[in-house]
């Protein structure tokens, strides 16, 4: 199973921690699996149109990923908040 690593700010929005195992052939299906287990994360990671929020970056095995990006069972999916002020 692939591993999703969430940013620390989402710690209080999860029930199962910041590091979670997910199945899926692409990033979209992996996130769907995460949202089934952690419904509150959907509104935090996707915008009203179902796209990745503007100031979130997702990397799969070190490469910038989109919802259609393929993942493998050994993949590491790292979700980052963009660097911005405040």
């Amino acid at each position: 199973m692939a591993t999703i690593i969430l940013p620390r700010l989402l710690g209080q929005a999860t029930r199962n921690g910041l590091r979670q195992e997910v199945d899926g052939e692409d990033l979209a299906s992996a996130l769907d699996g995460l949202f089934t287990r952690e419904p509150s994360l959907k509104a935090h990671l996707l915008d009203e149109t179902g796209s990745i929020r503007q100031h979130i970056l997702i990397f799969v095995d070190g490469r910038r990923a989109q919802l259609g990006s393929a993942i493998e069972s050994s993949s590491e999916i790292r979700i980052l908040q963009a660097v911005s002020g405040g």
Binding site: L9, A13, A43, H44, L45, D47, R53, I56
Partner: peptide
């Protein structure tokens, strides 16, 4: 609320 992660209710 968060500029990155939108709105939540706890």
């Amino acid at each position: 609320a968060s500029n990155w992660f939108g709105v939540g209710i706890h």
